[in-house]
Each structure stands twice: as C-alpha cells, then as structure tokens.
C-alpha cells in the first residue's frame, strides 16, 4: 500500500494534465502581466516590447481617469457591502427559523445569482430606461414621485449608484445562502437557552447569532470586496464606463485602454494594480475582522 501511495510514476502522470494547463494559462500569464507592466508595446505583432521601467505606473498614477476609476471601485465595494450584507443576512435570519414555505423564498432569493450577468445587466438597463417608458420611472410616476422620470444611467449623478443597486440585487442571494448555511448550523439548544435568558428579537440577533456566524460575515465581506475589484461585466454592459468615463472601474478602464486605445503598457500597469489590490484587500479585511472564535 505504501509503495502504491508513493509511486512517483502515478503521481506525476495523474498530476500532469492539471499542472500543465494551470501553469500555462493561469500562473505564467499572471506573472507575465506583472512583467509586462514594465514594458511598452503598441499591440502590433512583430514589434518588440520596449522596457520603460516604472513609466507605466507613473502614467497610471497621474491619469485622471484612473483616479476616478479607483474612487468608483471603492464606492462600488462599500455600497455593495452596505446593501448586500444587511439584506442578505437579514433574509437569512428570517429564513433561519425554517418558517413555512422557506424553501420557496430561499430559491427565489437565490435566483438572480445564477443568471448570466449580461442578461441581468440588460434587464436592469430596461428597468432604468430614461423618461417615463422605463419601468422604474413608471413606478415612481404612479406613486407620484416624479413627473418626467430620470435618465438613471445617463446622468452622472445617478449612473454609478444605479449600477451598484443592480449588482447588489444580483449578488445578495449568494450571501443569503452563506449566512443561511451558517445559521442552520447553530445548535438549537443555544437559541432556546438564549430565549429563556430573555434574548429575543434584535437582541438575539446581535448578541447570539452574529457572534456565532462571524466567520461567515468575514467571508462575505472579503468576497464582496474582492468581487468588486474584479467586477467588469456589469459596468461594461450597463454604462460602458460612461457618461464620459465617470463610471469606469479599473477593470473596464484596463480593457478600454488596452483593447480600444492600444495602450498596452498602461493597461498592464492597471492589471497589476488590480491583482495586487485584491490580494492586499483580502488580507487586510480578514485581519480587520479578526475576533475570538466562539466555542460552544
């Protein structure tokens, strides 16, 4: 048995396909992308890369659109946290007592998560349609909140927040499920004895449930923050970074710079930035939320 379990031939043979594919198309490219950020390349085959040192990073840091994109991505992350966590966890707490029909509700809450982001984004474009033909405007008009309607995605004041709401709608069910799994794992006697001790309603949620499922909250926060840094599709479809580049995030800016304007050097610097910032933020947010582990 020991000989079988340490047979080098089998080990290498079985690991080889996964190792080669993963190395060639994920690991080497990510290292290359860091390397590329020190070079300039006009995007034409046959023209060699030209070493430019830190020039791409300096250009990036001086670039006004990049400042906007970074501000936007943080706004995106923070507002998504503020919408998705309370609502997602709130719904999970409501479902946590397994009320009648909870499966139906859970399924419905999770549905948006499995939709293709392209389809979901286009649906929200229809909802945000300008003037009173748009669904949202029609709704607001019917309750007397507006006469003319708003051009939600074309107005620089509302465009980014409108996209954020659509994104939160899409992602929230995911965190509802994470929270639900954690809450369902709390032994019944803990909740019962808490109730006997007088911990009811919000008190129970705050002092009993939240501390026990803190690990799940941490994971949700990290996932939302990293997800926001990587987010591309929803902005690309809903606003194309507009109006006037005001809703760009680093990932859309990277795409437009590299593949529309052929600034591959600047694009590479931005992609290095995205990679490093997601690693940094996930470590920071894990640390910031460190708490004593609850034993019971």
């Amino acid at each position: 048995m020991e000989r079988f379990r340490s047979d080098k031939r089998i080990i290498i043979l079985f690991l080889l396909p996964a190792f080669m594919i993963y190395l060639a198309l994920a690991v080497i490219p990510i290292i290359q992308s860091l390397y590329f950020s020190f070079f300039e390349w006009p995007g034409i085959q046959g023209i060699p890369l030209e070493y430019v040192g830190l020039k791409n990073f300096i250009n990036m840091l001086k670039y006004g659109d990049f400042h906007i994109a970074v501000k936007n991505v943080f706004q995106f992350a923070i507002l998504n946290l503020l919408i998705q966590i309370p609502i997602g966890y709130g719904l999970a707490i409501l479902l946590g007592g397994f009320p009648k029909g909870y499966r139906l509700f859970k399924t419905a809450f999770f549905c948006p998560v499995v939709l293709p982001l392209t389809a979901a984004s286009l649906l929200w474009v229809f909802i945000y349609f300008p003037n009173v033909t748009g669904v949202l405007n029609l709704l607001l008009k019917s309750i007397g909140l507006t006469e003319t309607g708003k051009a939600w995605l074309l107005d620089s004041g509302t465009a980014l927040n409108s996209v954020i709401v659509a994104n939160a709608w899409k992602g929230l069910g995911y965190h509802m499920i994470i929270a639900f799994a954690a809450i369902a794992g709390i032994p019944n006697y803990i909740l019962e004895s808490a109730e006997i001790d007088g911990a009811l309603g919000f008190k129970k949620v705050r002092h009993i449930i939240i501390p026990i499922i803190w690990e799940a909250v941490k994971i949700s926060v990290v996932l939302i923050v990293i997800g926001s840094m990587k987010n591309f599709d929803i902005i690309f479809i809903m606003t194309e970074g507009g109006p006037n580049g005001l809703t760009n995030v680093p990932s859309t800016l990277l795409y437009y710079e590299a593949f529309q304007y052929e600034n591959y050097g600047l694009g590479s610097a931005i992609s290095a930035f995205i990679f490093l910032i997601s690693i940094l933020l996930s470590t920071v947010s894990m640390r910031a939320m460190r708490r004593e582990k609850i034993e019971y």
Binding site: L25, A26, I30, S33, K230, F232, Y255, S271, I274
Partner: peptide, 12 residues
C-alpha cells in the same frame, strides 16, 4: 485569487 482581467493582456 487570480483575477481574469489581469491575464487578458499577456494572453492576448
């Protein structure tokens, strides 16, 4: 952890 958008330039 690898963001997809970080590899599109080198792969392209």
């Amino acid at each position: 952890m690898i963001p997809m958008q970080s590899v599109i330039i080198p792969l392209s």
